[in-house]
């Protein structure tokens, strides 16, 4: 079984601060592998553990990817192919680039997160499946059965749960409820440093990066709460609260 996992580097959002006066975000923070990419990797590794084969991590992003991709290798991907010259990527450009890489090998399964936790755009599985002419199973919350030929999954949709099956090759997107991603230990990290990483440029792949939109602004919403702190013993606090509740409710 040959599995590609499309992973994404994201800003460590917990460290992103907002400038109060201008409401602009400060993006000068380290990047990390997205949580949903970890769910996708975990699922791929589980399948490899069962059926054997290879897990390849694939990603397009900034030069920082050279570092972030190691997290995927430490989790257990066997090797990686990365494109590091597309910092200002869009779903459109990333889908084109990842598809070019995926076309170079024949994968049985292509797995990714159902969206990334920064943009939450959720287009990648559909776009890649369309470019490669493959079926897609999105929002997978459980893989019921997988063999060399066929996969059966539970999809967690807004109002319904659905069991679907598809022949391989196939594109999957997984939800973050599908598993608990493993945390690599030191020995995994050391092992990862010896795994092969192929670094390409969009140019190598013959992809011209489209810029379909213009970002007019990107600001934090205005939060204007009183932030009045109430402390004290439970009785006092409760009396004060009761008063506020009677007034506001």
């Amino acid at each position: 079984m040959k599995i590609a996992v499309c992973v994404k580097e994201v800003y460590n959002l917990e460290q992103v601060k907002i400038i109060k006066e201008t409401r602009e975000p400060i993006l000068d923070v380290p990047k990390k592998l997205d949580d949903l990419s970890r769910n996708a990797l975990e699922e791929a590794i589980k399948i490899r553990e069962k059926l054997g084969g290879e897990v390849v991590a694939i990603s397009a992003g900034s030069p920082d990817l050279k570092k972030t991709i190691k997290e995927a290798l430490a989790m257990g991907a066997d090797r990686a192919v990365i494109v590091t010259d597309c910092s200002n990527s869009t779903p459109e450009s990333t889908a084109l680039i990842l598809s070019k890489i995926l076309e170079k090998d024949s994968y049985d399964l292509i797995i990714m997160g159902d969206a990334s936790s920064d943009d939450y755009s959720g287009q990648m599985a559909s776009r890649i499946a369309e470019i490669l002419g493959l079926p897609q199973i999105t929002f997978v919350s459980e893989i019921k059965e997988v063999s060399e030929e066929k996969i059966t999954c539970v999809r967690d949709m807004d109002d319904y749960l659905e069991v679907v099956e598809a022949d391989l090759p196939c594109v999957l997107s997984v939800t973050n409820e599908i598993n608990e991603p493993r945390i690599p230990a030191l020995k995994d990290i050391l092992k990862a440093s010896k795994k092969p990483v192929e670094t390409l440029s969009a140019n190598d792949l013959g992809v011209e990066i489209p810029q379909p939109y213009e970002i007019i602004e990107n600001l934090a919403p205005e939060i204007d709460r009183r932030q009045e702190v109430i402390e004290g013993d439970a009785g006092d606090v409760a009396r004060k609260l009761a008063e506020i509740i009677r007034r506001e409710a």
Partner: peptide, 29 residues
């Protein structure tokens, strides 16, 4: 937690143990 991110999103921010405060609050309503 006195400094949880929730504070910024609150008009009234009570620092305390919910297990003590809520029973008291129920009594006061």
């Amino acid at each position: 937690d006195e400094n949880a991110p929730m504070r910024e999103h609150s008009d009234y921010y009570v620092v305390g143990d919910l297990y003590e405060i809520i029973p008291e609050l129920i009594r006061n309503l």
